[in-house]
């Protein structure tokens, strides 16, 4: 599997490493995907890198690659963001993978081996949901709102109504809320705020977890929040050019 830029892998690693230390990557002809739970089983993260994300991709037999994020991060730090990455996994020797970074400009090539782990991964069946509300907005704006409000209080409430979407945090000494209304005068789709809902709803989530979830803003200019009463929120970042997505499910806080 050859990616045109290592930056994609670096961003994916950044988006999951606070939640997950080791995870199985499933490789098949459609691409590479992973699903993992954080140790507290509060957040589920799913990553899909489709064949379209790669400059070239071939997977003759489905394989599971057990990756330890820490050494993987060390290896990836050796790659320039605009260097090509080739990942090679051999079906005859499933003990390790090879990573080759190529810098075409400097005619430099570097090669690494990463030992694979035997991970007893837990998989969760996520049912298809009929969401009560969906909000799409610029991922940078969502990130700023979450980062700012997480400083105010550890509970982040998201309310959707005719007024728009309201994000609220309450701390011991202060309380803050931010309201976003659907944008009408913005041309660029990536800058638009779109809100749809069937019934008004209000749900509360742990702000520190939500902060971790906003790391994926580096992977996509937009984010979609899908909510339903008394259900985990789904926060989805779609990568450009059908390259894939990263999705997080975060369980709510309740009385």
């Amino acid at each position: 599997a050859r990616l045109p830029r290592s930056a994609v892998l670096k961003k994916i690693l950044d988006s999951v490493k606070d939640l997950v230390k080791e995870t199985n990557w499933d490789c098949n002809e459609e691409g590479m995907s992973m699903q993992a739970l954080d140790t507290g089983r509060i957040v589920l993260v799913e990553v899909m890198l489709r064949e379209a994300a790669f400059e070239s991709y071939a997977c003759e037999v489905p394989m599971t690659l057990g990756i330890d994020m820490e050494p993987f991060g060390k290896v990836l730090r050796c790659a320039g963001g605009d260097e090509k990455v080739t990942i090679k996994a051999s079906r005859n020797d499933q003990d390790h993978i090879e990573l080759v970074f190529e810098n075409e400009e400097k005619e430099r090539m570097s090669a690494f081996e990463l030992k694979l782990m035997d991970i007893d991964g837990e998989h969760m069946a996520v049912p298809d949901a009929e969401w009560g509300a969906e909000i799409s907005m610029p991922s940078s704006e969502f990130k700023k709102i979450v980062m700012d409000l997480a400083e105010i209080g550890s509970d982040l409430t998201i309310a959707v109504s005719k007024l728009g979407v309201t994000f609220t945090a309450q701390g011991n000494n202060c309380k803050g809320s931010m309201v976003l209304q659907p944008s009408t005068a913005v041309d660029k789709k990536s800058e638009q705020v779109a809100i749809s809902f069937t019934e008004p709803l209000e749900m509360t989530f742990a702000a520190p977890y939500m902060k971790m979830i906003t790391k994926a803003a580096a992977l996509s200019s937009t984010v979609t929040l899908s909510l339903d009463e008394a259900c985990p929120i789904c926060v989805r970042y779609e990568m450009e050019d059908n390259a894939g997505h990263i999705k997080y499910y975060l369980a709510p806080k309740e009385d």
């Binding site: 739970l37 089983r41 589920l44 998989h123 969760m124 069946a125 985990p232 806080k253 009385d255």
Partner: peptide, 14 residues
Amino acid sequence: GLAQRGLSTFFRLI
């Protein structure tokens, strides 16, 4: 205060 629920109460582990 509010209690944090776990995902296992919503999704099935397989």
